[in-house]
């Protein structure tokens, strides 16, 4: 399993934010995306996960290989911790094991309704979903938000186990996870340069109207 991304361009709200992006990620490795707010980390991750269309370029793995975890955890407050995870396990055709609950330190909380969890506990529940998905490539958007130091430790251990098992992880995060297997990809060089705004504005208006906007719109 290897993810190869070539010449990818992604857009947010019809505006191209990243272009010419190429990288590869092989099994057992992790890649951390870096870049200032608004550069398009979330957009890139959502595009890879198949939630939105790429403007251009290709990637070697289908979205079905990826387990996506965004800002929201998709937790149902009225279901218990175990019920939440059992649902996602059933969706992905796996079963919920005690090891999964243990890995994210949720065993003691299994029967608690999710609405009674703290923000950090909810986040751990959200990350435990990755373990039951059984998918090889984790695509994570700010996975450590609202986690305390101990929980970050659990998360890093889970990622490490996933990598050791032949998986891979792609994540956007601002903190240093101390993950030796992780390479860093700075997105700044791939920032889109202003072309391809919106089909109507640019697709046909490349040269402007009859010699420039002022000519036609003045």
């Amino acid at each position: 399993m290897e993810l190869v991304v070539r010449d990818l361009a992604v857009a947010r709200g019809g505006v191209r934010v990243l272009e010419g992006l190429s990288f590869s990620l092989s099994a057992g490795r992790a890649l951390v995306l870096r870049g200032p707010n608004g550069i398009g980390k979330t957009t890139l991750l959502r595009t890879l996960a198949g939630l939105q269309r790429a403007e251009a370029g290709e990637m070697s793995l289908p979205p079905e290989a990826m387990a996506y975890a965004g800002h929201a955890d998709g937790i149902k407050p009225t279901l218990s911790v175990a019920e939440n995870l059992e649902f996602w396990a059933a969706v992905h055709g796996t079963v919920l094991t005690g090891a999964v609950l243990g890995a994210m330190d949720l065993a003691a909380l299994a029967d608690r309704p999710a609405q009674s969890l703290s923000a950090g506990q909810k986040r751990r529940l959200g990350l435990a979903r990755l373990l039951v998905s059984g998918r090889p490539l984790w695509v994570l958007d700010e996975p450590t938000i609202s986690l305390d130091a101990a929980s970050v430790g659990l998360f890093v251990a889970a990622v490490r186990a996933h990598l050791a098992g032949g998986g891979a992880a792609l994540m956007a995060t601002h903190i240093d996870l101390g993950l030796a297997e992780a390479a860093v990809l700075d997105l700044a060089p791939f920032r889109a340069t202003g072309g391809g705004f919106d089909g109507i504005a640019d697709g046909g208006f490349g040269g402007g109207f009859d010699g420039g906007p002022a000519g036609a719109f003045g």
Binding site: V15, I200, P213
Partner: peptide, 17 residues
């Protein structure tokens, strides 16, 4: 409509620049 979209796109471009 096309002109309105064009204006919108130009404004968006200005904001980005």
């Amino acid at each position: 409509e096309i002109r309105a979209r064009r204006i919108k796109a130009l404004l968006a471009r200005e904001r980005m620049a």
